[in-house]
Design a protein around this nucleic acid. Structure first.
Length: 219
DNA sequence: GACCAGGCACATC
DNA sequence: GATGTGCATGGT
């Protein structure tokens, strides 16, 4: 591998932070809302997720007890704007079921469990894959794990810092091995990559004015 | 009307 | 292990 990886990843972070400033993620009022958002945002525009979360809040249902007691079809109707609403209603039910059964609904207890164990437990929940699990761990539990998403893959690939076909765990390892293990830095770095992706790194190349253009091999 | 958005499970080869 | 498909809304 390239010996300059650590330096380049640091450079990307510095350029992005300088260009965009702190992103103040995750946009939510409490850990449970983060978890809900993490599921609702799967393959979906965040604007649609905000509509769904507003529906839940307006209905007084943005809490574990409400999600648990509500019928799945009612829940689905409230989160409809986020897309895949039947699927995501089932997934939210699964998450709340897990929290209730394993931790009596006490999210703070999840912070005491060894990181590898809580990650494995979250991944065992139907509908929670690597990105959703890691988003919950980083942004809801505030523990140091790097979140890899489609923007991360695309950006890191275009910057030629990793092979295009590298999987989730491989990409995550690149960050874990080259960025200080720090919740605040992991939080900010991922949020900045999403910001960059939204504004400059679409599937079809479009990089004019990109803050990291000097590092981008392909354009 | 096509493309895209802060994935995941499951079937099939 | 890689690849394909279903799930669905709303903005550009």
């Amino acid at each position: 591998m390239r010996s300059s990886l650590k330096r380049d990843l640091r450079k990307v972070y510095d350029l992005l932070l300088n260009a965009f400033g702190p992103q103040n993620w995750w946009p939510a009022e409490d850990p449970f809302e983060v978890m809900v958002g993490a599921i609702l945002t799967q393959n979906t525009n965040w604007g649609n997720v905000e509509k769904a979360i507003s529906n839940l809040r307006d209905h007084g249902s943005l809490d574990q007890a409400s999600v648990s007691s509500m019928t799945e079809s009612k829940l689905a109707s409230l989160i409809r704007p986020s897309g895949y609403y039947n699927l995501k209603a089932r997934r939210l039910k699964g998450l709340v079921g897990f929290l209730t059964t394993e931790y009596s609904g006490e999210i703070s207890c999840l912070k005491e469990v060894p990181l590898e164990d809580i990650r494995r437990q979250l991944l065992s929940i139907k509908g929670i894959g690597p990105e959703t699990a890691d988003s919950i761990i980083l942004y809801a539990l505030e523990r140091p794990v790097f979140v890899v998403d489609s923007y991360t893959k695309r950006i890191i690939s275009r910057l030629r810092l990793a092979e295009k076909n590298m999987g989730y765990d491989g990409l995550q390892r690149i960050f874990h091995e080259n960025i200080p293990e720090d919740t605040g830095i992991y939080n900010e770095y991922h949020a900045l990559l999403v910001r960059l992706g939204k504004e400059y790194c679409r599937p079809r190349p479009l990089c004019g004015g990109c803050p990291v253009h000097e590092l981008c091999g392909s354009a």
